[in-house]
């Protein structure tokens, strides 16, 4: 399972990277989301305990590790905020440079 997980996370990261490097800025934005998904999965997977039940006080059995979960919970929301900001920037750029092509975004005086 761990090998599959590692391969999947690697694949997600690679795909995200590829998207990020494209000229179409919307695809770059998509790449950013995929990368943050990959990173969140990675963080979730390195918890100390492989749980079989939820991390609730009353649950019986081996609970999943609550610490990384709490960390990525806020991370997910924060990355949404950051992502929205990136989109706003893209929007401003598109309006200023009249393009959706990152290669045409050159110089500052427009």
């Amino acid at each position: 399972m761990e090998i599959i997980k590692a391969l999947s996370i690697g694949a997600l990261f690679g795909i995200g990277l590829y998207q990020l490097l494209r000229r179409n800025v919307i695809r770059s934005a998509i790449g950013l989301v995929i990368i943050s998904n990959a990173v969140n999965l990675f963080l979730l997977s390195i918890g100390a305990y492989d749980g079989v039940v939820e991390a609730y006080a009353k649950a019986v059995g081996q609970r999943s590790d609550a610490l990384p979960q709490a960390l990525i919970l806020t991370a997910i929301v924060i990355s949404l905020g950051g992502f929205a900001f990136v989109l706003a920037l893209l929007y401003v750029i598109a309006a200023r440079y009249r393009t959706g092509d990152s290669d045409e975004v050159k110089g500052l005086s427009h």
């Binding site: 997980k5 590692a6 690697g10 694949a11 990261f13 690679g14 990277l17 997977s45 390195i46």
Partner: peptide
């Protein structure tokens, strides 16, 4: 992308 993905895979395996 392949290099980045492979690197992250290795890092993951190591971390796991």
């Amino acid at each position: 992308a392949v290099a980045g993905g492979a690197m992250v895979t290795v890092l993951c395996l190591y971390a796991f």
